[in-house]
Amino acid sequence: MKIPKIRVLSNSSEIFNNPIYIQAKKQVENAIQQVDWPLGTGTFSIYPESGKKKGEGNGVKPIKDNFIKDLEEQGWSPELSIISGLGKSDAVLKTQGKIVAVAEWETGNVSSSHRSLNKMAFAIQQQLIIAGFLIVPCRNLARYLTDRIGNYEELEPYFDFWFNSIASLSYPAVIVILGIEQDEDSLLVPRIPKGTDGLANN
């Protein structure tokens, strides 16, 4: 899988030189790049069919599961809550018993993407984490996934707002939005199952 777009929301030289952030960012990027479809091929190929109609297009859960699995192998913990009442994060990185980074792989609509970013920003404001990573499909991939899934381009108009929110804090921290894409379109690969059907739990 490719990462054609990355937006880093921070102007803190302290966070950019923080070895924990450097490690976390590298691990998240590596986990994304290891995501493939069909599984085991080493390449992420998407069946080019719109997901607007029922029973068409591709799901998201199987590729998210493999991303989380890769992070687990690198020491991250899945499905943990960092703030009471705001739900669980897909993956968290702990150092010396303290949560220092979270990663969210977007599977919902753009409102869900906003909630994820707001949760990260709030956790940073409360000095609970130093880094948050949102992984979201670029429009070129999103058009073949579940209808109305959030995408990078829809979030772009708000980047300056979140940047200013982070930059205004004295606490050194960062939010990173990573836009992901397929390596290729192919009519020769199966659709990615939606929900918990088929291979979704594999």
Rank of each mutant, 00 (worst) to 15 (best):
S77E: 11
L117N: 02
I135N: 05
N140L: 04
Y171H: 07
H114W: 06
I83F: 01
N109F: 09
L39N: 03
V28M: 13
E104L: 04
K119P: 02
A200G: 01
L141D: 02
K98Q: 15
S81W: 07
Y171P: 01
G150C: 11
N30L: 14
K53N: 09
K61V: 11
N18H: 07
Q127P: 07
G108L: 08
G132Y: 02
G40I: 06
G85V: 02
K64E: 06
N30G: 09
P190T: 06
V8C: 07
V28Y: 08
K69A: 11
T196S: 13
G40P: 12
D70Q: 13
S12N: 10
V189T: 05
R139H: 15
T107S: 04
V28T: 08
Q23N: 11
I3N: 12
W76Q: 04
I82K: 02
K88V: 11
Y171I: 07
D147N: 08
K88Q: 13
Q27E: 12
P38L: 09
L9A: 08
S186C: 07
Q27P: 03
A131F: 12
V136N: 02
G75C: 11
F67E: 03
A121V: 15
W37K: 04
E154M: 15
R139V: 08
I166L: 06
I124H: 04
N140W: 01
